[in-house]
Design a protein around this nucleic acid. Structure first.
Length: 584
DNA sequence: CGGCTTTGACCAGCGC
DNA sequence: GCGCTGGTCAAAGCCG
């Protein structure tokens, strides 16, 4: 697989475009019944010329789309910056005595750029011909987990969702990672991974991940040791307590509990900050949850003070975000989604620890929307502008990323579930849609009918169905796809080779291949269970049945293998049986 | 034998 | 103060 990453991204793109158009050409030629054998070479030459022209056009289109995207992003940053400045003035007049490092009332996303850089860019917008602009863009426009994420492991040590009292020194890697926050009070740059630790002491945020999972725990790439189990109130399923054992003193804990309403749903709640290097898959999950937690912090700071029910976090941050969907690590946080999410029952979720002590944000990976992939003909290229899609730019209805930015109906959403004013709970429901779209994307790939592509899709399918940890990997991938608007030049190659970067540095127009590489670069590890993409093989469904029967007394006991050996579903089911027999 | 899970006991916070 | 609940501890046992 690593061999596939050797050509440059532009070469890959070019080859792909050429091969696809070749296929189209072949189909066209074969359908022309009047074409004689003598005409074929002529036809081919003409078509080749057309293909080359088309290739050039596509490349031009691609660069134009990238420029549009960059331009839009610059404008966005400019708006954010203005809002921040205005808010600064207001705050300084009313709260002139506040400490600078106080927990900010509002936190705005910079998505990989520091405010200073915004200012530079804002100037560049006024002077669009300034040659340095593009260079700056390439260097700075890194969203989510960019190439810098592949820094030495010492620098990746603080990626976990939230704060804990035991923290690493903060000075280490301020500029080293992708997503950056800025506060409106001091235009202080806050790294999602580091500075969130500074934000959170006052509010211990937890990130809860809801996922359909047959295994007792979700494989998130970390090693966990179970230290307790309790029957919590309101849920017959026991709640298991795990702590991270990758490093001896790692403070990160997680709670795992089945959803009372749907026992196929596993609720994993993370708390704390890893004080050690993380594996690829762990980093992905940690970063994603970190971003969610960051958003929670920014929103909850105001939502908690308001008794207004169902107040939306995005709304809280409207000062910073305007009406555009907000992205953290590639996740869109959109108040429209909140409205949608209120109606279906399944969209409402109370995390396992529903006490008042910890604001909890929920990443909901469950229940793909009604747009079931099985309802979509497999030979139809699928792309919904409302969805995040990995279909390549060759899709006939290709939509530039800028449309995703501006689309208010984007399905990646952020929901604040403040039905109880005393409880700060927030939902993020981006991944179910992502799953759906990833599935669609597989069809996009297979629809090209290129054998290698098909094989690739099958390989991905297998990887996905064998290891549920792909949840986190894909989460990172999707975030980078949304966030990564500009290329990183040569770093991309390097990142692809390293695996993590591959998942985190996707270039516009390379989505299918890059995604494939990402998934397969995770050593075959994955998290999206087969049911999402393969709609459950007969064996899995029967396993699910067994699992449901055993569920109420199930111990969550495979954390040991979570990092090194992804648990086989069958083995786990057997373990469950053994355990049950043992208890009997 | 080391590392892990299990499980009852214990502790702290909160509401009444 | 008391009871409830969530969270943690630690001894015992299991497993590779």
């Amino acid at each position: 697989m690593s061999k596939m990453s050797s050509p440059s991204s532009s070469e890959i793109e070019e080859k792909r475009v050429t091969s696809i158009i070749h296929e189209v050409v072949e189909v066209d030629c074969s359908t022309e019944q009047e074409v004689t054998k003598e005409d074929k070479p002529k036809c081919s030459k003409e078509e080749m010329g057309e293909v080359k022209e088309e290739n050039e056009r596509l490349k031009t289109m691609l660069s134009r789309v990238e420029k549009d995207y960059n331009s839009l992003q610059l404008r966005f940053f400019d708006i954010v910056n203005k809002d921040v400045s205005m808010k600064d003035i207001e705050d300084s007049s009313t709260n002139s005595h506040e400490e600078i490092d106080e927990e900010p009332e509002f936190v705005s996303l910079c998505l990989g750029r520091s405010p200073n850089e915004y200012k530079k860019d804002a100037k560049n917008i006024e002077n669009p011909n300034k040659p340095k602009e593009k260079e700056d863009m390439e260097v700075n426009l890194s969203l989510g987990l960019d190439s810098k994420y592949m820094v030495p492991m010492e620098l990746v040590s603080d990626l976990s969702p939230m704060n804990s009292s035991e923290e690493l020194p903060k000075e280490v890697e301020v500029e080293e990672k992708g997503a950056i926050f800025s506060t409106n009070k001091s235009t202080k740059v806050i790294n999602v991974n580091d500075e969130i630790s500074e934000l959170l002491p006052a509010k211990r945020v937890r990130v809860s991940v809801r996922a359909k999972c047959d295994t007792p725990t979700m494989n998130d790439g970390c090693q966990w040791r179970k230290y307790g189990q309790k029957i919590a109130k309101g849920n017959p399923c026991p709640r298991a307590y795990y702590r991270c054992t990758v490093a001896p003193a790692c403070p990160v804990r997680k709670q795992v509990q089945r959803c009372a309403d749907d026992m196929s749903i596993l609720i994993t709640t993370y708390e704390g900050t890893h004080n050690h290097p993380l594996q690829v898959t762990a980093s992905a999950m940690a970063y994603t949850t970190s971003a969610a937690a960051s958003m929670m912090v920014s929103g909850s700071s105001t939502s908690s003070s308001s008794s207004h029910q169902n107040q939306n976090i995005h709304h809280n941050n409207s000062t910073s975000f305007g009406n555009s969907p907000t992205q953290i690590n590639g996740l869109n946080f959109n108040h429209h989604q909140f409205e949608q999410s209120r109606t279906p029952k399944q969209h409402f979720f109370i995390p396992p620890n529903h006490n008042n002590l910890f604001p909890t944000i929920t990443l909901d990976l469950t229940s793909p929307s009604s747009l079931s992939s099985s309802n979509i003909p497999s030979n139809v290229p699928r792309f919904s502008p409302n969805n995040l899609s990995f279909c390549s730019t060759q899709q006939p209805n290709f939509t530039p990323i800028s449309s995703i930015w501006n689309n208010s109906n984007n399905k990646l959403g952020f929901i604040n579930n403040n039905t109880n004013p005393n409880i700060e709970k927030t939902q993020v429901r981006p991944f179910n849609h992502f799953q759906e779209n990833f599935y669609q994307n597989q069809n996009c790939m297979t629809s090209y009918q290129t054998p290698s592509r098909q094989a690739l899709a099958e390989t991905i399918s297998k990887a996905i169905s064998t290891d549920p940890s792909l949840h986190s990997v894909i989460a990172a991938a999707v975030s980078s796809i949304v966030g990564q608007g500009s290329n990183n030049g040569g770093k991309q190659e390097e990142n692809r080779e390293n695996g993590l970067g591959a998942g985190l540095n996707l270039k516009l127009g390379e989505y299918p291949q890059m995604v494939s590489n990402n998934l397969l670069n995770q050593n075959g590890k994955g998290c999206l269970k087969g049911s999402y993409f393969k709609r459950l093989s007969p064996t899995t469904s029967s396993q699910a049945k067994n699992f449901m029967l055993l569920q109420p007394s199930l111990p969550f006991s495979v954390s040991k293998s979570s990092a090194s050996k992804p648990p086989s579903i069958v083995n786990n089911i057997n373990n469950f049986d053994l355990d049950k027999n043992k208890h009997n």
